[in-house]
Simulated assay, not measured.
Amino acid sequence: MISHVCVGVNEFDRAFAFYSPIMAALGHELKFCESEHWAGWKPKDQPRPLFVVNRPYDGHAAQAGNGQMVGLLAASRQAVDDAYHSALANGGTCEGAPGLRPQYHPDYYGAYFRDPEGNKICVCCHEPE
């Protein structure tokens, strides 16, 4: 259903340094990186979906949207924990610590954070422990 998701950033190098360890914790590999402009990660065994960080093409400043969030799928609860802790260690801010969210479904385990530019990210696992 999803081909790619783009998250607009103003400071590409900072965003690349922030997202690289998160993508590694989730088992994703770098598909491309064009210096100072954009980079994209993908699952190791599939060509898509892509998670892309990029400077806006129109040249205007990137802005985080109110009510917008990107949800990244994790294969395990440990991967959720690892991605979340990596985010906080690299300048992210907590929007909800890792844990079960049974209001979504009994096995929903997620964490929420904002990147250094204010973009809201969720990392979640839907599998039982």
Rank of each mutant, 00 (worst) to 15 (best):
S20G: 07
D13L: 13
V9W: 06
A24D: 06
A97S: 15
P128V: 01
Y109E: 04
L73R: 04
L88S: 14
N90D: 15
C124T: 03
K44E: 12
E127Y: 10
D82A: 14
Y84M: 01
E34D: 12
H126Y: 06
Y19H: 08
A89M: 09
G65Q: 12
L88N: 07
Q78G: 14
V9L: 05
L73T: 02
G118Y: 11
G8E: 04
N66Q: 11
L88F: 10
G99T: 04
P102G: 13
E95A: 12
A61W: 03
G8A: 15
P56M: 15
F18A: 02
C125T: 03
D82R: 10
E34Y: 09
E129A: 15
L72R: 00
P49L: 05
I121F: 03
S86K: 05
M69D: 02
Y84V: 01
A24L: 04
N119K: 03
G96K: 05
C33L: 08
G99S: 13
V80Y: 01
S3L: 09
L30C: 08
R14W: 03
G92M: 07
A74Y: 00
C122R: 02
C33D: 11
Q103E: 10
A62L: 00
C124Y: 04
W38R: 12
D13M: 09
G67V: 08
G27H: 05
Y57I: 00
L30K: 09
C125Q: 02
A62N: 04
R114K: 15
F18D: 01
C124D: 01
E29M: 12
P47G: 05
F18R: 00
K44A: 15
E36W: 10
P106H: 05
Q103K: 15
Y109K: 11
L30R: 08
M1H: 15
G110C: 13
P56V: 06
G71C: 12
P98M: 14
N10P: 05
Q46H: 14
D81Q: 13
A61F: 05
L26R: 00
G92T: 07
A75Q: 15
L50D: 02
Q46P: 03
S86M: 09
F32V: 06
A17K: 10
Q103V: 12
F16L: 14
